[in-house]
Lab assay of single mutants.
Amino acid sequence: KFGRVHERAEGPAKILAIGTATPFHWVDQSSYPDYYFRVTNSDHLVDLKEKFRRICNRTMISKRHMFLTEEILQKNPNLCSHNEPSFDVRQDILVSEIPKLGKEAVLMAIDEWAQPKSKITHLVFCTRSGVDMPGADYQLIKLLGLSPSVQRVMMYQQGCFAGGTMLRLAKDLAENNKGARVLVVCAESSAIGFRGPSEDHPDNLIAQALFGDGAAALIIGSDPKMGLERPIFEIVTTAQTFVPNGDCHLALHLREMGLTFHCTKDVPPTIAKNVESCLIKAFEPLGISDWNSIFWILHPGGNAIVDQVESTLGLEPNKLQATRNILREYGNLSSACVLFILDEIRKKSGREGLKTSGDGLDLGVLLSFGPGLTIETVVLR
């Protein structure tokens, strides 16, 4: 008597548009150690500064975009301390800036989509910054002038794996609601975790050397309108798992001094060791076991992770080039990073006149991972 209210779509979910945005301000990685130790009044920690310089040199990052300028840091000195309470200051900045950054990426996506924004039916927003109620999803709806009846899902504090999570959720929403057009937004800022150095917490140096700011937005829907919408990728399958006891290797915690970062040297080999089982589960039903026969979007948690995944799986050097390019130009953008790589690989395919948006290949994989050593596996066509 009370059956399904919403009719299912006929076809699989497809990515119809991609937009990205970054803050205008950026830092050069080669000179960042001098800048970082100067603005945090830590130049007296000579040995720690040299250690940080070595870490920065190993990241293979060229530059990173950041909202925090020297002027902002001078006005808010607690942000430059390692342990002073600064959460309220971070909140005041990020509750406002995260939706604005997301808006810039959304406008780029809508411009490519070339359809009225009134056709957006759902919003899925993800960030690890600016936790608030009502959330960044609500603020973004107002900034864009979208209908208050847009169906919203707000996900805070997920971390680097969440780019894949957003695709998984959007696929379910698009395929189970005929005519749905799902706006996916990942907006991230390193301002939540920026803090001064400490000899007692070397993990913090890794975070300060890796993370950048950026937002990515996608429009996802099934059954694209012929002649009006141009699909870029099809989302074939999605899956999530985590490595048992992985939280002892990688975890982040909200504290009075901001978001703290805990990471062990076992993260790269542990991820590399567990990736292939995810690939087998995803691609065995499709008859694929040659990992060089697919295109790759791999989250660059750090250069060591990229190198070890490449080595463990025997990947050809060009397979992870898009990942390395984004890491070099932006650093680790947390949940937004794989979506930047997705954009990079389709643009490169277009520039080179390849037959598909995925490096000329039919199928590919998007792998994202993060806290708890959670792994998201997304098969794309």
Rank of each mutant, 00 (worst) to 15 (best):
Q321K: 13
L367S: 15
F295V: 13
F295Q: 02
F52P: 11
P23E: 09
I110V: 06
V267N: 14
A322G: 04
I235R: 06
S293C: 00
D28K: 06
R351S: 04
L45Q: 03
C278D: 11
I294R: 04
L143V: 11
S335N: 13
D132S: 07
V378Q: 15
C278G: 10
P85V: 13
L254Y: 11
E256I: 07
E112W: 08
A13I: 06
G19V: 03
L254C: 14
E316W: 00
A9T: 06
S335C: 03
P85M: 04
L342D: 03
E329D: 10
T237I: 10
H253N: 12
T241A: 10
T237G: 08
D359I: 01
N76K: 08
V243H: 13
T127A: 07
N325D: 04
Y330M: 00
I120W: 03
P244I: 00
P231G: 06
L279P: 00
H25C: 08
P134V: 10
V95S: 13
I294C: 03
T237P: 05
V309H: 00
I271S: 05
D88G: 10
G19E: 04
R351T: 08
W26L: 09
V39A: 11
L342W: 06
E316S: 09
N41Q: 13
N303H: 07
G372Q: 13
H25G: 10
A21K: 09
L339A: 09
E284Y: 01
S30T: 14
G11C: 05
V39W: 09
V131T: 09
Q29T: 09
S289R: 06
A336N: 14
G135W: 07
G302R: 00
F261K: 15
L68R: 12
H6I: 06
K142Q: 12
S311L: 02
T20E: 02
T127V: 04
R328E: 08
Y36G: 11
K142M: 09
G364E: 02
G11Y: 04
H25V: 07
E70V: 08
P371V: 04
G360A: 05
D362A: 00
N318D: 07
R324P: 06
V131F: 05
H44W: 15
A304H: 11
V39T: 09
L68P: 08
T20L: 03
I120Y: 01
P116Q: 10
K51Y: 12
G358E: 04
I110Q: 09
D359L: 11
S277M: 07
V338S: 14
E112C: 02
T374L: 13
L45F: 10
A251P: 15
A282M: 00
F87L: 12
N274G: 10
K348N: 12
C337Q: 14
L228H: 09
N292V: 03
S289M: 06
K273R: 09
G130S: 10
I18E: 02
T121Q: 02
N325T: 04
T69A: 07
E7N: 12
N76I: 05
L373I: 12
A336F: 01
P23W: 02
I271Q: 05
H262M: 03
A109E: 01
F125P: 01
K355S: 08
C248T: 09
A105P: 02
H6V: 11
W291M: 05
P285T: 08
R255H: 10
V236Y: 04
V236R: 04
W26K: 10
G314V: 05
G372T: 12
G350I: 13
T323C: 15
V39L: 15
V95E: 13
L354I: 10
L140T: 00
S334C: 13
G11P: 01
V124A: 12
A304Y: 04
P317L: 03
L143H: 14
H44L: 08
V106L: 10
I280K: 07
K355C: 03
A17D: 06
V131D: 11
K63L: 05
H122L: 02
H299Y: 07
L101M: 08
F67W: 13
S289G: 07
H25E: 07
V378W: 04
N318C: 09
S368R: 05
I93G: 10
T312S: 09
D111P: 02
S129W: 12
F125D: 03
L327G: 06
V106M: 07
T270G: 11
I280G: 04
S349K: 08
L250Y: 03
L123N: 02
E310R: 04
G130K: 04
I297T: 05
L363F: 12
V306W: 01
E329K: 12
W26G: 09
D47C: 10
P148G: 01
F125G: 04
F233A: 07
I294H: 03
V365I: 07
F233P: 00
G372Y: 03
S81P: 10
V379W: 08
Y32H: 11
T59C: 08
E234A: 03
V89D: 14
C263G: 11
I93L: 13
T377S: 08
C278E: 14
Q308M: 13
D34E: 10
Y35W: 08
I280A: 10
R54C: 07
